[in-house]
Amino acid sequence: MKNLLTTIPQRGDLRHWANVEKILQACDSEEDFWTFGCRYFPKESGPGALCFMVHSGYVRGYFTVLEFTEEDAWRCSEDQQEPELYQGPKVKLAVWRSIPTVPQRGFQGWRYTQLQP
């Protein structure tokens, strides 16, 4: 099973690493998780794999992949009055772990990676 790499977009509440880090540290269980959307699920990965996260030009840490899901999710940011319905395929992640930063240019979508903790 291959590990994944994806980028956290730098917009809204997610613009500054200090804000993002607080959110990620709270993702420590299946009830408090992070998701990212995708057009299709990674075929060579799955639950138990790791997903490394890029922000501001660096890999900052990783999550454990919980599942691939198409369940609807609600998300809200500080500048929104109402939560927004988020539909379609998603990768559900939990248990954030920081690592020493590794330079990596951001990109859209996800990629397979050889990175290890």
Rank of each mutant, 00 (worst) to 15 (best):
S29V: 04
C38P: 04
L24K: 04
Q108V: 11
L66E: 00
K90I: 03
P89W: 01
I8M: 14
E78F: 12
G109A: 03
V54K: 01
L93S: 11
G12M: 09
T6R: 01
G37K: 07
Q80Y: 05
G106W: 02
I23C: 08
Y62T: 04
C51R: 00
V20T: 13
Q80N: 12
T69E: 00
V95I: 08
Q81W: 01
K22A: 11
M1D: 03
D72R: 03
E70N: 08
R39C: 12
S98T: 13
Y58H: 14
T64M: 02
P47N: 02
R111I: 07
I23H: 04
V65F: 00
R97K: 15
P100R: 07
Q116I: 13
T64D: 02
Q104R: 06
Y58N: 15
E44C: 09
L4D: 01
L14E: 09
Q87R: 14
Q80L: 13
F68A: 06
P103G: 12
W74I: 05
R15C: 13
L85K: 15
S45F: 00
V102F: 07
T113R: 05
G37W: 00
V59P: 02
S29A: 08
P117L: 12
Y86R: 09
L4Q: 00
C27W: 05
T6M: 13
K2E: 10
K90F: 06
L50C: 08
W74D: 13
E78Q: 09
L85T: 10
P89N: 12
P103F: 11
E30K: 08
L115W: 08
D28A: 04
K2D: 13
L24E: 07
C27N: 08
E21Q: 12
D13E: 13
P47M: 07
K22I: 03
Q108R: 14
G106Q: 06
G106A: 07
R111Q: 14
A49G: 05
C51N: 06
Q114A: 15
P89Y: 03
G109P: 05
K2N: 14
Q104Y: 04
D79N: 14
P83T: 04
F63G: 02
F68Y: 09
Y86H: 12
E21H: 06
C76S: 10
F41N: 09
G88W: 01
R111N: 13
V102S: 10
P117G: 11
G37A: 11
Q10F: 03
M53P: 02
T69F: 01
N19C: 11
T7E: 00
G88I: 03
Q104W: 02
R111W: 02
A26G: 14
W17Q: 07
D32P: 01
F68G: 10
V59L: 02
Q114V: 15
V95H: 15
V54Q: 08
A94L: 01
H55I: 09
T7L: 01
S29Q: 03
G61H: 02
R75G: 12
T101M: 14
W34I: 05
Q25L: 15
P47I: 02
F33V: 05
R105G: 10
V95G: 04
L93E: 08
Q114N: 15
L50H: 09
G46H: 01
V20D: 09
D79Y: 06
